[in-house]
Structure formats: C-alpha cells, structure tokens
Amino acid sequence: MEPVEINAGEHYLRAFRHDDRVSDVPALVEIYADPATKRYMTSQNIIDAASAEMFVLLMSNGWEKDYRWSWAVCDAVSGDLVAGIVLHNVNRRLGSAEVTCWTHPAHRGKGVLPRALNAALGWAFGAKDMHRIVYKHAVANTSSQRVAQKCGFTLEGRLRDEEIIDDQRVDQLSWSRLSTDPVPEQLP
C-alpha cells in the first residue's frame, strides 16, 4: 500500500522520509535526544543518524506491507517535523491496532498531537475500517494522558509493571477508542 497523506489544518501528515529532497533523520535524532522522549519512548531506540534511518526504513516497510501505518506530522508552512504517529500491531481481521505517538519538545502543549491523531484515527476508522485503537502510556506520563482524553479514548485499566522506565518497573494506563465512539467535538 502507498503511504497516505492527511490534511490536519495547520499540519499535514505524510510518510517519514529520508531521501535526496526531504530527510526526517536530523529531526528524529533531535526529538529522541530529548530527556522526556528518551524516558517514555523506550520501544524505539533512535540514538544517531543510522538508527533514525533504520526507523524511517521500518516505517516505510510497514506501509509497503500494509501492517503498520505511520506519519510524520509536519508544519503546513515550513514542512518541519513536529510530531510522529504510528499505528502498529495492526490486526485486519479484528480491525484493531495500537497507537504510539510523540511530539517534538519545541511543539509540546500546543495541541498539535491531538489534532493530528484525531485526523489519523478518522482515516483508520473510515478508510481502513478499523474498529478498535488502543493507546497505552506510563502512568506518570500526564502529557500522554491528556492526548488520550482529548482524542476521545476511554480509560480501560492499569497494566501493572508493564514497562521499564529509569530502570524501574512501572504501570501503564490502557485506553481505547472504538469506531462507534463519538468523535470529540472540539479539540483545545
């Protein structure tokens, strides 16, 4: 499947890129050098340009094989990478997936991710006929909790000792949004 671009107002969602015209590699390295990103995004280990290039390749492969859908969320004017969204663990038979997302430190608290994630969810529920999207985050990650709430996810429970952060086992909160749930009317 070809990557899908989505217009989300002040931002647009496109495939992650590393080619002779556009490269998300420097921004990915910068984002993952941020202490908060490093702390909570433990499943992806982007530490340098080579690992960022591998990440872009893996995201591209997901589109190609239609098992993972990912977007670089970019400023509509500058084209700068400001956030990322990945729908993974896609199960087409069940119509389910899990979302992972992050925001560039310079763009946090501006509502970028809730608007972009809502746009991506609209595509997943509409174009791909998904039924259930799961969102998980460490209990201490209150920014992720606000994103889940703003995007209409419902808290389902607490996963005990689900993740390791700062060399300590921590609980995660698990949220879901169904295709039948009401779309949030207004995003702050």
Rank of each mutant, 00 (worst) to 15 (best):
G9I: 00
G9K: 15
G9A: 07
E10P: 13
E10G: 12
E10N: 12
H11K: 05
Y12L: 11
Y12G: 07
Y12W: 15
Y12N: 08
R14L: 11
R14Y: 02
R14D: 11
A15S: 15
F16R: 02
R17S: 14
R17L: 14
R17T: 10
R17A: 14
H18Q: 05
H18P: 06
D19H: 10
D19T: 10
D20M: 06
D20C: 10
D20G: 11
R21P: 00
S23Y: 06
S23C: 03
V25M: 07
V25H: 05
V25C: 12
V25R: 03
P26G: 05
P26F: 05
P26C: 09
P26S: 09
P26E: 12
A27W: 07
A27R: 14
A27K: 13
V29C: 06
I31N: 02
I31C: 04
I31Y: 01
Y32M: 04
Y32I: 00
Y32E: 07
Y32V: 00
Y32K: 01
A33N: 13
A33Y: 01
A33Q: 03
D34P: 07
D34Y: 04
D34S: 03
D34L: 02
D34I: 01
D34A: 04
D34H: 08
A36C: 11
A36H: 14
T37P: 13
K38Q: 13
R39Q: 08
Y40D: 02
Y40N: 14
Y40H: 12
M41Q: 11
M41V: 07
T42N: 05
T42S: 06
T42Y: 01
S43V: 13
S43L: 13
S43N: 11
S43P: 03
Q44K: 09
Q44M: 12
N45F: 01
N45M: 06
N45I: 00
I46G: 01
I46R: 02
I47D: 10
I47E: 10
D48V: 07
A49M: 09
A50D: 15
A50R: 14
S51K: 02
S51M: 09
A52D: 05
A52C: 09
A52Y: 09
M54S: 12
M54N: 11
M54R: 11
M54F: 10
F55I: 07
F55K: 04
F55P: 00
F55L: 06
F55Q: 06
V56R: 00
V56G: 01
V56Q: 00
L57E: 07
L57P: 00
L58C: 11
L58F: 08
M59C: 10
M59T: 05
M59N: 08
M59V: 01
S60D: 12
S60Q: 14
G62I: 02
G62W: 00
G62E: 01
W63H: 02
E64D: 15
E64N: 15
E64K: 13
D66Y: 11
D66E: 12
Y67S: 01
Y67Q: 06
Y67P: 09
Y67F: 15
R68E: 05
R68Q: 13
W69I: 10
W69Q: 06
W69T: 09
S70M: 10
W71A: 01
W71P: 03
V73F: 06
V73E: 05
C74R: 02
D75R: 03
D75N: 13
D75W: 04
D75C: 11
